[in-house]
């Protein structure tokens, strides 16, 4: 039985948005092809996007993925068989 890694993903989306000419959530949502509510949920840390969306965000903000998203593990054991 594998044990899923537990941790907290934080992001700099709001900061990056404001750095990019104060881009609105609606504009970013349109560029990504998601709803504005999804952007709001990501910014609030209540929803973690798929890798595809994360890479698209990284493209839009022309920044590395690990500058945009940070992972803080709750425990050191990531996976155990």
């Amino acid at each position: 039985m594998s044990k899923q890694a537990k941790g907290v993903i934080s992001n700099q989306l709001r900061k990056k948005r404001f750095e990019k000419d104060e881009m609105t959530q609606q504009e970013l949502a349109k560029a990504l092809g998601v709803t504005r509510q999804t952007i709001a949920a990501i910014e609030a840390g209540k929803y973690s996007p798929s890798l595809e969306v994360a890479f698209c965000l990284s493209d839009i903000f022309e920044t590395a993925l690990d500058e945009l998203f940070q992972w803080q593990a709750n425990n050191s054991k990531i996976s155990k068989e």
Partner: peptide, 11 residues
Amino acid sequence: DDDIALIDERD
């Protein structure tokens, strides 16, 4: 009406 035809990954 932007989201009428839009179902994203979160939905």
